[in-house]
Design a protein around this nucleic acid. Sequence first.
DNA 1: AAATTTACCT
Length: 561
Amino acid sequence: MYLTNFSFKTCFNALLIFDSVVVLFQGLCYLSSSCSIEMLVRLDFRSLFFTQTPVHFLRFFCSLQLQPTPPELPQFEPSNDADLISQLLLHHHNPFHAMESSLQLNGISFTPFLVHQTLIRLKNSSKVALSFFHYSQTQPNSSTSTSTSTAFNLLIDISCKVRQFDVAWQLIIQMDQKSVKTDFTTFYVLIRRLISAGFTRQAIRTFSEMHVFLDQYGEDEVWKLYFSYLLDTLCKYGYVKVATEVFNKEKWRLELNCKVYTILIYGWCKVKNIEMARRFLGEMLDKGIDPNVVSYNVLLNGICRRASLHPDGRFDKVIRAAEKVFEEMTERGVEPDVTSYSILLHVYSRAHKPELSLEKLRIMRRKGICPNIVTYTSVIKCLCTCGRIEDAELLLEQMVTNGVTPTSRTYNCFFKEFKGRKDVDGALRLYGKMKECSLCSPSVSTFNILLGMLLKLGRIGLARDIWDDMKDSGAGPDLDSYTLLIHGFCEKQKWKTACEFFMEMIEKGFLPQKVTFETLYRGLIQSNMLRTWRRLKKRLDEESITFGSEFENYHLKPYRR
DNA sequence: AAATTTACCT
């Protein structure tokens, strides 16, 4: 019998819902002997990972001699040494002295893995990261391969992030001198950061000069191979004018294909210039290059994305324009796919048209196009925001039956609606269900929506429970979680607690928003908690964190006297 | 690393 991926998934999802993990493992073991490993790998094992039996899961994978690489992989191999070193470096007055004395005791050797892991933890402190890297290379018990290109690439990224592009170049020259392989990745890191900082000319110059360092390819080959990445990055950051300019100038030496034109169409769509996007679609056709489904989807998304849908007249106009693209596609022999329909369904969702949304879902099914997670999430979101939670739940069930595993984003639609209804019980019931059935685990946003709701309604105790859950899950907290929580405590005038979390977020390397600081500052001063305030200020000074000079001058004056 | 869901808050 021919078993499809689809039948596996449906079966697994069903078993997971009934918590029949043991049966599932027996099934997997049986299958592994009767079908190809590739087929097993294609299944979504993420669900298994969050059951209580990860050890069995690992053992199963070992028996297949595979590397288990599901997303959000919990850390089974703790990088204690990297944690230790980064902690020492970030929080000690004389970090390298401290490190030396404690490391010699522990006999830690600087393997490439350790250096890399430590650099990741030091990514927000470029100076420390650089010093550490140089230090690690001088250590007697470090292997010579410490200076791998991955470590260099990471350092280049860390330096560029704080706009130290000269440091990045020094590192590249060092790589060259030490015969560490520089490949396109190295330059791509630099180019991306240059573009994101707005230095497009420098990025282009870097691109046209990098062939000197890439000895395996000639200049022309480099342009042909990598130009689309430069073009894409320029477009992604909104510099489509620059992208078009360099494209027109260098056209003669490029291989013009569908991909390059699609990138440009994307760029013009991003800056909402549909006319220019269409012009490039025309140029493509003139040159005899056939647009494919991606090209049309990009254009379609440009027409639909962020288009104003209020009032209904505008909505109709957008839908007509979208339908026109659909027609054009069919005329040119390109069949609309799941993505095309998902883009359209997202418009219905934004315009709050549940009936049209469901109708379109039926139409696409009839055409034999299988909805995916994005499609379902759009429709579910539409139903939720229109208050039809029960219908949304039905669709969710249907989706699982069809072998599509929900993500936290799917669940977040429900949570958002519960938040709007101030329905704490409903939200907590769903949260419990989500934890139990382990189809997917809550994301930071899930926690943030819940936190936002609970704090707004003054349910501080519950909010703290959720906070603890979030920490245990390892999904958070992030900047927003801290901001929400601190603002919540400020609202309740619990200045001391708010201050503790403010300190904690700084320790973790998050830069608080100016508002958070201002709120806390005012609260502490008004309730005469000067000691707490000074302790906080001292900590901020140590980290050289400021919140804008005008603000400092205006508010801090009284306390300098 | 040519495309689609982007939540929370100020």
